[in-house]
């Protein structure tokens, strides 16, 4: 088992949530760490880009796992799942239903490309600051303005397919 101890020691798990709160005082809400290796925080979309830049700079190998779009009924949420220094930091951005848009982070992290296209396709969240969002997940003949993961999505016109 000694080899395994060595393996683990190169993983310095930092308290990334505390660092984030210290770096952006007053900007980070609902900070919670339910268990080791998991952290949750809420930021506004205005600081999303600086926060992303900070997180990606936190140690080697920091990357964006994916972006989840959630429709709670009252609002949309875009949850950015970052793997940073031994912690899965889930960064929530709350969005108004009437105007769901987030700034693109593709220039900071090219790997975000597909995830931004996906939340636009399926939840209709606009991503600003990058060119046209090409379709990624939905079919070519999918009607405009239909976002299947929204809770109030009525289904396809004419009850097409299933």
């Amino acid at each position: 088992m000694c080899g395994q101890e060595q393996q683990r020691s190169d993983l310095a798990r930092r308290d990334i949530l505390a660092e984030l709160c210290a770096r952006f005082p007053g900007e980070v809400g609902e900070a919670a760490a339910p268990r080791p290796g998991r952290a949750w925080a809420t930021v506004s979309r205005e600081v999303l880009r600086p926060v992303t830049e900070f997180l990606l700079g936190c140690g080697p190998g920091a990357y964006l796992s994916t972006i989840t779009a959630v429709d709670t009924g009252e609002e949309f949420q875009a949850i950015y799942h970052f793997w940073v220094a031994g912690t899965e930091l889930n960064l929530r951005v709350r969005l108004d239903r009437r105007e769901p848009a987030v700034p693109s982070i593709m220039d900071l992290h090219p790997g975000a490309n597909f995830y931004e296209r996906e939340i636009h396709d399926l939840m209709g969240i606009e991503v600003t600051g990058r060119g046209k969002l090409e379709r990624l997940a939905v079919p070519d003949d999918w009607p405009e303005g239909h976002y299947p993961l929204r809770k109030d999505w009525p289904g396809l016109p004419g009850g097409e397919s299933a």
Binding site: V138, P139, P148, G155, L156, S161, A162
Partner: peptide
């Protein structure tokens, strides 16, 4: 028959 995916919005059957 469409199997477990029967009824999914992108599936014809």
């Amino acid at each position: 028959t469409g199997g477990v995916f029967h009824g999914c919005y992108c599936v014809y059957g």
